[in-house]
Amino acid sequence: MKAKHQRLILAAVALCGVAGAGVLGASALRDEAAYFRTPAEIKAGQAVVGEPMRLGGMVAAGSIQRQSDGVTIRFVATDGKASIPVQFTGIVPDLFAENSGMVADGRMLADGTFVADRILAKHDERYMPPQMGDMPKNMKVAPKV
């Protein structure tokens, strides 16, 4: 009887553990998963200010501006339909260039600027997020904003 009792407790503990883990995982996913958005989707209101997000687009021609500190850049990400200004402090990947694709991890500010923590360039052989593969190759580049 006692052994049965104990197994019951063990099973209950395990069940609670599994349920707890499920809740933990689900809530962490809801808070921390970053949506992949294009500039057009952001302009259409599909982005919450301050939430982690991944922005994909082309670097608009002539849009890269280096700030005087030498390590901060501003550029415009575009998908041909809409444009979003992006700010990034750090060393950009080697393949980051105007008229080529990029993906940025970061968040939107209330003023409509995207602040990037990390930038990945398309064709970066070390890492390419799967979303990049879907971006049209002949994407029209929007005029400088």
């Binding site: 970053a34 992949f36 991944r54």
Partner: peptide, 29 residues
């Protein structure tokens, strides 16, 4: 939980939503 985080973007993609799960999720769980 690691498996969930790894597969979730693939499952979400199949349902038409592009999501990436990064270090904040894994560190938290």
């Amino acid at each position: 939980l690691v498996l969930l985080g790894t597969l979730y973007p693939i499952i979400a993609e199949a349902m038409g939503e592009k999501i990436s799960v990064g270090p904040p999720y894994y560190n938290k769980v």
